[in-house]
Amino acid sequence: MAVLAHAEAGEIAARLRAIPLPGHQDLREPENGLVMLRGRVGGDGAPFNLGEATMSRAAVRLASGEVGFGYTLGRDGEKARLIALCDALVQSQDFGATVERDVIAPLREQLMIRRKQAAEETAATKVDFYTMVRGEG
């Protein structure tokens, strides 16, 4: 589900539109709130409170009974609802494979492409040290 948290609501919705969805209802309406983000002293020590972030959550139940939960950073409640819907769908016998193949897999691929590009741009700024021999240059 990490892939969905990194996607935009519009991207998830567009992928879901291509699937004939079963009946479902909001178990918990999307709501906005805060999460206290924690770091660790020295990066690996005792936790401390760094500061908050906005987050959204929602829960969806399929007509067939599966319950899905959606959580994401930010204030886009619709995105939390779409994640909850996907979470419910992946648990269903009839829709799990389809959602994995038509929604999550393509979004994962997009995410990987974005990350690869960023990593390559970053890699170009890596310093290659060389030592000058005395008398040279």
């Binding site: 709130g33 805060l34 999460v35 983000l37 660790r40 960023a118 700024t125 040290f129």
Partner: peptide
């Protein structure tokens, strides 16, 4: 921030697993 409820706290983030965009050390080349 005072207008929103707090849902809880995150797990402590792992900066060792950061997808680094910049990283310099003045102690080791």
């Amino acid at each position: 921030r005072a207008t929103l409820p707090r849902f809880g706290a995150s797990e402590p983030v792992d900066t060792g697993a950061m997808r680094v965009q910049r990283r310099v050390s003045s102690t080791f080349k």
